[in-house]
Simulated scan of single mutants.
Amino acid sequence: MDEHWSVAAHRHLKAAGVRQIGYVPDGGLRLLIERCLGDNEIETVMCATEEEAVGLSAGAWLGGQKSAVFMQSSGVGNTINAIASLISSANFPFFAIVTMRGQWGEGNPWQVPMGQAVVPTLEAVGVKTFLAESPDAVDMMIESGLRMAYSTDTPVAVLVGQKVIGSKIWTAGKAVNQ
């Protein structure tokens, strides 16, 4: 695949009619966030917390728009109460793209615990998770995840694996891309 996975992700978001994005800045999502920020048809909102992005998503649905949430795996724990109480209880559709840390090649010991807890934590509150370990898999999973979320009112998270976004080496308290 010659293009960065973010090109296909943006194309699928547009095709699905997503009009709002709530995100917390993340290096693995940088190119996708930039594409959405440059798209006049998508309202892209930087949030202070991942939980705020979940609230934005629910509000978008109540206002008649589809949305998506972008976050790193370390922020998933911040969303659990909002997903369990707001999204699951109200039966709202929900779609998230989560870049993973704490997997293959991780060099930061602080990222490992939450990276390992993402799938069981999300599944415990009713979110279907799909782990994409290659750019082609990201493409297919985002397309089908959006369809599932918005056709069946199911919370879905596509997890973009560390093999796709790259691992980081942690030296002297500083992360360096490998």
Rank of each mutant, 00 (worst) to 15 (best):
G22W: 09
A60M: 06
M100R: 07
G102N: 04
G27C: 12
Q111M: 11
G27Y: 14
T79I: 02
P25E: 05
V54C: 08
F130Q: 15
V69R: 06
L29Y: 10
T49E: 13
V45R: 12
Q65E: 13
D26F: 07
G38Y: 12
L37P: 10
G59T: 06
S88H: 14
G22L: 05
P93F: 08
K66F: 06
L56C: 05
V118R: 02
E123V: 02
V127E: 04
L29M: 10
Q65N: 15
V119H: 00
L122N: 02
N78R: 06
V125H: 01
G64M: 05
T79F: 09
N108S: 08
P93Y: 09
I83R: 05
T44F: 08
A90L: 14
T99G: 06
I33T: 11
P120F: 01
T129L: 02
P113G: 03
N40Q: 15
Y23M: 03
L29A: 04
P93K: 11
W104Q: 14
P109K: 10
E123D: 06
G105T: 05
D26C: 11
G126M: 01
A82F: 06
Q116R: 10
M46S: 13
G107K: 05
I80G: 01
T79G: 01
V98G: 00
S89Y: 15
L56A: 07
S67R: 08
S85D: 12
T129M: 05
E51I: 08
A96S: 10
A53K: 04
V118F: 02
W110K: 12
T49G: 08
M46K: 12
I83Q: 07
A58Y: 12
Q72Y: 08
G59I: 04
V54K: 03
E34Y: 13
M71A: 12
Q116N: 13
G105M: 03
S73D: 01
W61F: 12
T121N: 04
L122F: 09
F94Q: 02
A60V: 08
V112Q: 05
E43H: 15
R30G: 12
T121Y: 03
T44I: 05
F92Q: 07
S74V: 14
G38N: 06
E43R: 15
Q116Y: 01
A124N: 10
D39L: 07
G63S: 11
I42M: 08
W110T: 12
K128L: 14
E50K: 05
V69G: 02
I42G: 05
S57L: 11
K66G: 06
A96G: 00
G75L: 00
T121C: 04
N40F: 14
Q111Y: 10
P113I: 08
I42V: 04
V69T: 09
N81V: 09
A82D: 07
G28R: 05
A124P: 04
I83S: 03
P120Q: 00
E123C: 04
I80E: 03
N40I: 14
A82E: 07
E51Y: 13
Q111K: 10
E51P: 07
E43S: 15
T79R: 03
N108Q: 02
E106L: 00
N78Q: 11
W104H: 15
A90S: 12
T121I: 07
T79M: 03
K66R: 15
C47V: 02
V127F: 05
